[in-house]
Design a protein around this nucleic acid. Structure first.
Length: 528
RNA sequence: GCGCCCGUAGCUCAGUUGGAUAGAGCUCCGGAUUUCUAAUCCGGCGGUCACAGGUUCGAAUCCUGUCGGGCGUACCA
C-alpha cells in the first residue's frame, strides 16, 4: 500500500513540475491517528522547506495532479500534511491478495546476506539462570525474522565450555562427586559440585591453588582431566538442550570457546607480526591510537603469564565465521555491560583488515526486587528451569479454573503453551534496552497486553476455520470489507508487510509484539 | 574523573527515527452477553514526557547544560 502511494506521489511531483532536491525520498507512512486517514505524507512540508515554497500551496498543487487510480482519496490537513483514506474496495482487494500469499505481504530483503547470530551462550556446568532469558529469546526471535526476510542465517551457540571454572569442577569431580546424584540429575549435581568447591576455595587458599593446577593439567592435555571435561560438557549440553526444546529454540552450531583453542596462539602471533598488537607491561595488547573513544582503552589478547582471554577467543571466532561461513554480518545478542568489549573487538577486527558488519545487540539488565543487579556468580539466582516450571504451573491453575472439563492430556499441553509463551512474550514485548525488575506477576500475567491474549485470539480464529472446514470456501472474490471493524482488521493485516522489514533496522522484536497486540485487538473487536 | 544507557499516567511500559490534540495494559468506576471458546468487547477517570535553555513551520524524539538512577573503565567471562 505504502509503495503504491509513494509511487503516485513521485508521479504527482513530476506532473506538477517540482524538481526533487538531491537525496530526497518521498515518504508515506501509516497514520498514528486514524482520524487523519490511513496513511499520510509530509513530503510537501519537507519539500517546501527546501524549495522555499508555501507548504499548503505545494500540497494543493500535488493533490491536483495526484492520480490514485481510485484506490484512495487524498486531502490536505494542518500545516501541509497529505492524508490518504483507502477505499473499502481497495482493502477488500488487498486482503484478498494476502489470502493466497505465503509471505503475508512481507517483501524479501534485498540483498540477502549471510548473517551469523551469536546468542544465549551459557556457561557449561552451570545451569542457565534468568539472566540468560533475554539473550536466548531476543536472539532467537531476530534470527527467525531475518530468516523470514530471506537472509541466510547461521545461529551459533558460543557456549562457555573452556575457562577457569573447569579447574574447580575437575577438582570437585575427583573429590566430592556423588555418582548416584549425577545419574539422577546431572545438571543439579554439577552445580552442587561447583558450589561446594567454590565455598572450599573461599575458605582455603590452598584449594584454590589445587584447582589452578587441575586447570593447567587440562590445558596441557592431561588424559584424565580431558575425559572429565568431555563428560561435563556432554552432560551440560543435554541439560541445556532440554530447556531449548521447551523454548522451541535451536542452533545450527554449538561452537563453544574450546573449539578455538588451537587458533589463539597463531592469532596473537599474527597480530604481533602485522603490528596490530604490541607488548605492554608483559602482556600483548591491541591499542587504538587515534581513536578518540578507545585511545586509553587497550584490550589484552595475551596475559603476561601467556594465557589467553575472552577477547582473544572472540577475535578467533570472527576469523572463523568470516573465513568458513563467509559471514557478511555478525550479530551479538549480549548484555549492555559488555559494550566496551565489543567496541574493542570490532575495532581490532577492522585493524586486522576484516570487514564484516558487526552489531552488538545489547539489552538491559534484570534487577532484583531491590532494584539492584541480579548477581551472576552469587549462586542463588533464579534458575531458568524454575521460571519455566512455575510459569507452566500457574497456567495449569488458570486452566483448572476456566476449563475444568478439558481432557487431562490437553490441559497439560495447553499449560505448556501458555506458560512458556508468557515468559517469551514478556521479553519480546519490551524494548530491549530497558532494565526491568524480575517479577513473577509481571512475567506471568494472563490479562492485558500478554501472550495469552494473543494466543486466545489465535484460538478464536482457528475455531472459526475448524467450523468452516468442508463447508465454506474462502476466496478473494467473496471477501468484502465493509463495516468499521472489518476495515480496521484489514488495515492491520496489510500493515504486517510494512512492519516486519522495519524490525531489523534497530533489532527491535518488541515492535512486532506491539503490532501483534494491535492486530489481536482489531480481531477481537471484529469478532465481537 | 571519563565513556555508554535510562528518566513518559498511581503501577508496568509503547511511541513507526522530527509530525497534528503523547498512546496501551494493569488498577479503579460504569456498561455489554441466551458465545463461532468471556483468557472477550465498549465507555470513563488519569500527563509540566526529570529540569533549564537552544535548533525550526513543528521536539517526548536532535544539540548543550543540570539533577537523579544503572553499567563500564587492560591482564575474569
Amino acid at each position: 500500500m505504502i509503495e503504491e502511494l509513494e509511487q503516485a506521489m513521485v508521479a504527482a511531483l513530476a506532473g506538477a513540475g517540482v524538481e526533487l532536491p538531491e537525496g530526497f525520498r518521498v515518504q508515506v507512512e501509516s497514520s498514528a491517528d486514524l482520524r487523519f486517514g490511513d496513511y499520510q505524507s509530509n513530503a510537501a512540508m519537507v519539500l517546501a522547506k527546501r524549495l522555499r515554497m508555501n507548504p499548503r500551496e505545494l500540497a494543493a498543487k500535488l493533490i491536483d495532479v495526484l492520480d490514485l487510480g481510485g484506490m484512495a482519496t487524498a486531502d490536505i490537513a494542518g500545516p501541509g500534511f497529505i492524508n490518504f483514506r483507502i477505499e473499502k474496495e481497495t482493502w477488500s482487494r488487498r486482503v484478498g491478495e494476502l489470502l493466497g500469499d505465503d509471505r503475508l505481504g512481507v517483501p524479501l530483503a534485498s540483498p540477502a546476506q549471510t548473517i551469523v547470530v551469536d546468542f544465549s551462550a551459557p556457561n557449561v556446568a552451570k545451569p542457565m539462570h534468568v539472566g540468560h532469558i533475554r539473550s536466548t529469546i531476543i536472539g532467537d526471535s531476530l534470527s527467525r525474522i531475518a530468516r523470514f526476510l530471506g537472509h541466510k542465517v547461521i545461529t551459533d551457540n558460543h557456549i562457555g565450555d573452556w575457562g577457569t571454572q573447569f579447574g574447580m569442577i575437575i577438582h570437585g569431580w575427583k573429590t566430592v562427586l556423588n555418582d548416584a546424584a549425577l545419574q539422577a540429575d546431572p545438571v543439579a549435581e554439577l552445580l552442587r559440585v561447583y558450589r561446594a568447591v567454590n565455598a572450599q576455595c573461599d575458605a582455603d587458599e590452598s584449594i584454590r591453588e589445587t584447582c589452578k593446577r587441575e586447570l593447567v593439567k587440562l590445558q596441557a592435555g592431561d588424559a584424565e582431566n580431558r575425559l572429565i571435561w568431555e563428560k561435563c560438557v556432554d552432560l551440560s549440553k543435554q541439560g541445556l538442550q532440554g530447556i531449548y526444546d521447551r523454548l522451541d529454540v535451536s542452533f545450527d552450531y554449538w561452537y563453544g570457546e574450546s573449539f578455538y583453542n588451537d587458533r589463539l596462539a597463531p592469532l596473537v602471533d599474527d597480530m604481533l607480526s602485522s603490528g596490530v598488537a604490541r607488548e605492554s607491561e608483559g602482556a600483548v595488547c591491541v591499542f587504538f591510537d587515534g581513536d578518540e573513544k578507545l585511545e586509553d582503552k587497550p584490550t589484552v589478547v595475551r596475559k603476561a603469564d601467556g594465557g589467553f582471554l575472552y577477547a582473544t577467543t572472540d577475535l578467533a571466532t570472527i576469523d572463523f565465521r568470516v573465513e568458513e561461513w563467509r559471514a557478511e554480518q555478525i550479530w551479538y545478542v549480549v548484555g549492555m555491560p559488555q559494550q566496551l568489549h565489543f567496541q574493542q573487538i570490532f575495532e581490532a577486527t577492522r585493524k586486522r583488515g576484516l570487514n564484516p558488519q558487526m552489531h552488538h545487540i545489547a539489552f538491559g539488565s534484570i534487577l532484583g526486587e531491590d532494584r539492584k543487579l541480579m548477581k551472576t556468580r552469587s549462586g542463588d539466582n533464579v534458575q531458568l528451569v524454575d521460571v519455566l516450571d512455575e510459569s507452566v504451573e500457574r497456567a495449569a491453575k488458570v486452566i483448572e479454573e476456566k476449563n475444568p472439563g478439558m481432557d487431562p492430556g490437553e490441559k497439560k499441553q495447553v499449560a505448556a503453551i501458555v506458560g512458556i509463551g508468557a515468559v517469551k512474550f514478556a521479553e519480546l514485548s519490551q524494548h530491549r534496552m530497558t532494565d526491568y525488575v524480575f517479577s513473577w506477576d509481571r512475567m506471568l500475567a494472563l490479562q492485558g497486553d500478554t501472550a495469552p491474549y494473543l494466543q486466545y485470539s489465535n484460538v478464536r480464529v482457528r475455531s472459526i476455520f475448524r467450523k468452516l472446514e468442508g463447508g465454506v470456501q474462502l476466496d478473494a472474490a467473496t471477501l468484502v470489507v465493509e463495516a468499521d471493524a472489518e476495515v480496521h482488521l484489514a488495515r492491520m493485516l496489510v500493515r504486517f508487510g510494512e512492519t516486519v522489514p522495519s524490525l531489523l533496522d534497530d533489532f527491535r522484536p518488541n515492535l512486532l509484539a506491539n503490532y501483534l497486540l494491535d492486530l489481536a485487538k482489531a480481531f477481537h473487536s471484529f469478532f465481537e
